[in-house]
Write a protein that binds this DNA or RNA. Sequence first.
DNA 1: CAAGCCGTGTAATCGGTGCTTACATTCACA
DNA 2: TGTGAATGTAAGCACCGATTACACGGCTTG
Lengths: 234, 234
Amino acid sequence: MPRTAKPSPRRPAAKPRRPAARRAPAEKPYHHGDLRRVLVDAAFDLVGEAGAGAVSVREAARRAGVSPGAPFRHFQSRDALLAAVAEEAQRRFRAEIDKALAKAPADDPLKRFRCLGRAYLDWAMRNPTHFEVISSRRLFDHGKSAAVTRDNNEVVGLTESLLKDAHARGQLGPSDLKQVLIGARALVYGFARMAIDGHFPRWGVAEGEVDRMADAVLDLFISGIARRPGHTSA
Amino acid sequence: MPRTAKPSPRRPAAKPRRPAARRAPAEKPYHHGDLRRVLVDAAFDLVGEAGAGAVSVREAARRAGVSPGAPFRHFQSRDALLAAVAEEAQRRFRAEIDKALAKAPADDPLKRFRCLGRAYLDWAMRNPTHFEVISSRRLFDHGKSAAVTRDNNEVVGLTESLLKDAHARGQLGPSDLKQVLIGARALVYGFARMAIDGHFPRWGVAEGEVDRMADAVLDLFISGIARRPGHTSA
DNA sequence: CAAGCCGTGTAATCGGTGCTTACATTCACA
DNA sequence: TGTGAATGTAAGCACCGATTACACGGCTTG
């Protein structure tokens, strides 16, 4: 695949490329300072600019100002490079989740639960291509990255424990917790993907409405699982 | 991309390219019978075998027994070929939806609504790669195919009208219909994508449980929007 | 029936891609 | 200070999408 056949912006060079180990930056040291890092950054940017499909080893090498074979010293394959990008994306995603939860009321699990969902949607809609990388396999094999897997499992555990806390406090109705967990996750993941995959226009949701709709749908779901007058909580 | 680097079966050639003009299809007529159809079928199979990424014009040509340039007489680009595959997939998807609705009780909109969701999930999980083709843009531009767009809009309209009917019959609670529509769609789409993208294992849902979980989640959502004792329906 | 247009196939070619191998350079450590 | 390991370059393979010039032959038309 011509990989969307970019005109290949190709930086005008001008890369000091680091203070050089000892003296005189000397134009172009044979060894790149931290090629691995630069390659991941370049690939990360490529994902942001045109999606995972736009990532090519050669383009990353071009942006790093290095020969086409060089990246293979650091990444066994294109997929490995993409996996590194996924790890970076997953790290940032996780950080935003944590930040949002830090701002949420510490003593209301159900509100924290909702806040988690909202933060998830916010990040996904603001970083659609990176979200896709960390979400859909086929773009890269999640099993290949222990870091992504671990981070993911932590988010799962976090979600689960918030739900359990809410249940313990009597905030939830009689529904099965696991079903609620999966339902919530499906709802949020589906909403994010609808946005990313461009489904909203044909479902009658205009660009500017998406944010409010996100809130409304979260509220709808939560009101559906919350304890209601007239029901016991178990 | 080596596009999964197939060993490239490559027919044993033997193309005398005989006159064979008049009768007896004999060996190999210069003109293929219906190359376009055969190419779409081949590409359709490729999607089923290894996903949309595995579709290459050359492989489709190989399977059709024609030269690599031949497909371009029928499809302007690889994307156009993929769009044709998407149309075929969308057609089959739509057919299954209609079939399922034909079996559903005609006088219970809410049950028909649930049945539609279940049929959606069934088809998606049985045809993950084709579902992905008709769902995520980036694989092909939905705007390029009027047929896919039309079919999609019909499904949207169908869903919407079922919901309206349910509301008119007092089967629903006081929630905003549009929010219910989007919530339902997000839930179902998200569930399907979780299955396709391999999320269920890390969310604690084993292979064999997915089907029951699908039912449970549908019920959970519907019970959340259905009219409940103690509430008026509007 | 013959002529020839034109749709549809082939062959050759171009540039882009992932990836490998052989070689060159430099760093870091003994 | 010398040397091996790490890391870059150069060249090249196979595959891909896409384009072009040319070959075939079914079809209409005179």
